[in-house]
Design a protein around this nucleic acid. Structure first.
Lengths: 192, 192
DNA sequence: AGTATAGCGGAGGAGTGCCTCCGGTTCTAG
DNA sequence: CTAGAACCGGAGGCACTCCTCCGCTATACT
């Protein structure tokens, strides 16, 4: 057994996960550390700091992720992928609940919260792929909710998603306020 | 005439504006350049770059604004102050229109858009002062609109302001989308 | 157990930003 | 007009981050 395994399949973005046990440990530690660091400092977090947090040399970081973008992509795509799965999981709830639950899930991803909002307009093939995957997952939920009359007809999925991601990235006093404001905004989605 | 004049009065934050003509030119150029730079790169913009943009040596920047915070404050307070004045200007519109117009104005301040959102929780005397001034200006507009029945009773000014500043800082495809999303969110403020 | 090798990690060069310092310049008051 | 105070601006030291390179180590396969 010598080929590397592709950790993330469904997005078509292959990320090499090493075969050796020690290497795999480091790989995972780096990913976890990066997730935290990006959540804390946005996509400009220090790579040396990430390596330190992971308890790993800087060289190891660069071997696994030759560029900062590679590392960022790995974290980003991981969370996008989970988001896509989440869409399946809520599929059998009533239309509005399904969509709302999915959005809550969207909000819940701390690591890429800031990042998603920072990079939502980035123009690269990989990002477009990821964004499309996310949209493909969420759009049907939106459409369904809209068709069922729970969402006003004069809005669209992209607008709503950007609204939510803006709110998500904003600074709030506490989680209670974040939830309150999010609910306030979502409430405005219903027809009047 | 030898004392420096205080450029910004009403917030109680005195910022020294030089007396000599050349010095004053540089001071103003720096402020303008900083406004642009902060708008573009957030509060972490490069000071050397700001000096370059202003066509001024780095030494001059540091003489006028000994710390990055000083420069940032000067820009920030300037815009907050204009926001306070804007509150007076809309005072004779109908309640909801007054509040909405003020919010649009709030959104319109490009320079500190990102900054306001980045720093909304910052804990320093000066920032608290500025934030309070802004709140003092906007709160009556909100209250009035809420009492008149244009805003649902189960929300508050702080929540709304953070919602809007979150949206403001978010990335949109174009200004049309930004306006659309903002209106969508504001629409949700009305009672149903 | 032994060995080939994938993987480790940190030293260090390059680049960039921060901030200080001071010799030279420009303005203003008299 | 002149003198000197006020101001200019960039060279340079410090700190930090990026990224490469290579001698050493741990692992997996036989």
């Amino acid at each position: 057994m010598t080929e590397t395994t592709s950790a993330r399949g469904s997005l078509g973005v292959a990320i090499k996960r090493p075969h050796r046990a020690d290497a795999r440990r480091n790989f995972d530690a780096l990913l976890a550390a990066a997730r935290d660091a990006f959540a804390e400092h946005g996509s400009g977090a220090s790579l040396e700091d990430i390596a330190r947090r992971a308890g790993v040399g800087i060289g190891t970081l660069y071997r696994n992720f030759p560029t900062r973008q590679d590392l960022f992509d790995a974290v980003y795509f991981g969370e996008i992928e989970e988001l896509c799965q989440a869409a399946d999981e809520v599929a059998d709830l009533p239309p509005w609940e399904a969509f709302e639950t999915w959005l809550q899930r969207f909000v819940g991803y701390a690591a890429t919260k800031r990042a998603i909002y920072e990079e939502l307009n980035r123009d690269s093939d990989l990002f477009r792929t990821a964004r499309e995957a996310m949209y493909d997952a969420g759009q049907p939920l939106f459409d369904h909710a809209q068709q069922s009359g729970a969402i006003r007809p004069d809005t669209n999925f992209d607008d709503v998603l950007r609204m939510v991601s803006g709110l998500t990235a904003a600074g709030f006093v506490d989680d209670a306020q974040r939830t309150r404001v999010l609910n306030l905004a979502l409430d405005g989605l219903h027809p009047r």
